[in-house]
């Protein structure tokens, strides 16, 4: 059998793609969170981190394009599999009872699509600067992009922060099912492995949720207020 056909045209192959791209995205989300948490160390730390990333354009753009490709494959497999799943049950049940299936597991496509909308907003907000162009023009004393002030200004709007918090809740619902399932799709979730995969998924989902939410929450509660003056 042709390997390409087997992977891109079979349900099992697409689940491999979904699992591998999902795993890569998990690593990105963890790295992104650790990078962002530097905001609690003050302006110097996070602005220097931003300047360091910008000073390596080849690496930065390589990572960005890699991420874009990863996201594209993840979404393509999700949508094609989802369409196949829907087509597999043309007549639905009158009485719908989901047995044993968790809420997160039944809503993966929706949590995923809303997170996608969030990612687009997030990029327009803090990377492209289409939402508030003035945020990208901020400069600190050393002439670097003032990320610290940008984040504090960005999150001082309760509506914006609220949307971030909601999106993190959905992302973590997605991760709580996805992290455990990727082991299943790759074939390593039998017996004892299942217990560890579920524990890891729970730990990761809560860790990412609390870590990422801590930034808008802290800012809403007054963290960095003096920088706004």
């Amino acid at each position: 059998m042709n390997l390409f056909t087997a992977i891109f045209h079979s349900t099992l192959g697409k689940k491999y793609l979904m699992a591998i791209t999902g795993l890569l995205l998990i690593f990105f989300v963890i790295g992104h969170m650790i990078g962002n948490l530097q905001i609690f160390l003050g302006p110097e730390s996070i602005n220097a981190y931003g300047a360091f990333l910008k000073s390596k354009p080849a690496l930065l753009w390589g990572a960005r394009l890699g991420l874009l490709a990863t996201v594209a494959v993840h979404i393509w497999s999700a949508i094609t599999l989802s369409a196949k799943n829907r087509a597999a049950r043309p007549v639905t049940y009158k009485v719908n009872r989901s047995v044993a299936a968790s809420y997160a597991s039944r809503t993966m496509i929706w949590s995923g699509l809303i997170v996608l909308a969030f990612i687009i907003y997030h990029l327009l907000h803090f990377t492209v600067g289409a939402v508030n162009p003035e945020l990208l023009a901020l400069r600190d004393e050393a002439g670097r992009h003032d990320i610290y002030l940008m984040v504090i200004q960005g999150f001082s709007h309760p509506l914006v922060s609220g949307f971030y918090l909601l999106s993190m809740a959905l992302l973590c619902s997605h991760l709580s099912h996805g992290t455990s399932s990727l082991f299943q799709s790759l074939g390593f979730r039998s017996g004892q492995q299942k217990i560890w995969a579920n524990r890891l998924a729970l730990l990761l989902a809560w860790g990412i949720f609390l870590g990422n939410s801590s930034i808008p929450l802290a800012i809403l509660m007054g963290f960095g207020k003096e920088a706004l003056k």
Partner: peptide
């Protein structure tokens, strides 16, 4: 034309012979 597995665990729960999800892995 069967669908794909999304690891919800419903199959294992209704199986009269209690076939485990482990076999899918």
């Amino acid at each position: 034309g069967f669908g794909a597995c999304t690891v919800t665990g419903s199959c294992e729960a209704v199986c009269p012979k209690e076939i485990s999800l482990d076999f899918i892995a």
